[in-house]
Design a protein around this nucleic acid. Structure first.
Lengths: 155, 155
DNA sequence: AAACAATGTTAGATTAATATAACTTTTTTT
DNA sequence: AAAAAAAGTTATATTAATCTAACATTGTTT
């Protein structure tokens, strides 16, 4: 059994630990609570792995968890979960809604990128997307043309 | 001493191993050859770490290296190095040249993202960038306006 | 060519993240 | 309420990637 330690990423948490927080937030929204096994199922890892991570997150003030009980986020944990969710959402919408990347792939890529880009980058990506939507993609025709252009390979 | 194994990422190589290949390609372009210690310096890791990685890459046909000699890429290794370099370049130009992210940060983010996005995503990002350059960012004024818009926080 | 410096290699240790397997607690079923 | 199932916990093992430290080889200087 190895203890987790803090690492890179904005809040000093590893991608893996950020994922645990994000997943707890999603589960809480979906079913009002998050159990160890729910988290394990969502992330496709074993209960024991979740346990180790949750112990670390508990000891460091990101989640609340007493033995055999539900897992909850502290304010600090929730703040990070929300930040990661926002990054995911902006990235997903950019990839799927503007670049027309297949939704499953867009989701997977967003999942990975969300842990390693700065908030400022996300902000500017979001601004670019909304600027284009507002001024250059007002008609269905514009959108169809963009899609066609992006998919083209030759030239 | 632990053996490397193949993992995710397009070509089935981990981000770390892709980085070694990319670095070798860069060094070869810069100084015509790549030594273990050059690679270590570039990646800010120790010689011994480079050695372990290079042994794995040699055994699996990505690089050529005999004891105490220079490191070279096989065709297979070079192919991957070029792909990663292309991803880096598209990502960097998008982040720095279109989103106006500070060049050092843009470079760091490109370095991380380059190992986990599909070629198709890179292609579309490049197409979007060149489309915008061609039709909507022809005057210096347009570019300045975009920069201002992207940086804005309110509203 | 001997001495020294630089570079490269190897073995073993460490870290983060995961898994397996045995065990405990809680929940559900009968 | 006893038995069975489900969920949670713990210890130990494994993997990728790195490090330290000892050692070997090569290159450079005198």
């Amino acid at each position: 059994m190895v203890k987790f330690k803090r690492r890179e990423s904005i809040n000093n948490l590893s991608a893996s630990l950020e994922n645990y927080l994000e997943t707890i937030a999603v589960l809480k929204k979906e079913k009002k609570y998050a159990r160890i096994s729910d988290i394990a199922k969502s992330l496709d890892v074993k209960n024991s792995s979740v346990n180790v991570a949750i112990n670390f997150l508990t000891e460091n003030g990101f989640v609340i968890h007493k033995k055999y009980g539900y897992v909850d986020l502290t304010d600090q944990g929730e703040k990070i979960a929300l930040e990661v969710q926002r990054k995911h959402s902006v990235l997903y919408r950019f990839l799927n809604g503007l670049l027309f990347i297949d939704s499953e792939i867009a989701n997977k890529e967003a999942c990975k990128i969300e842990h390693l880009v700065n908030e400022e980058t996300i902000h500017r990506l979001e601004r670019l997307h909304s600027l284009l939507n507002k001024y250059f993609l007002t008609k269905d025709e514009d959108i169809a043309n963009l899609k066609e252009y992006l998919e083209k390979r030759e030239e």
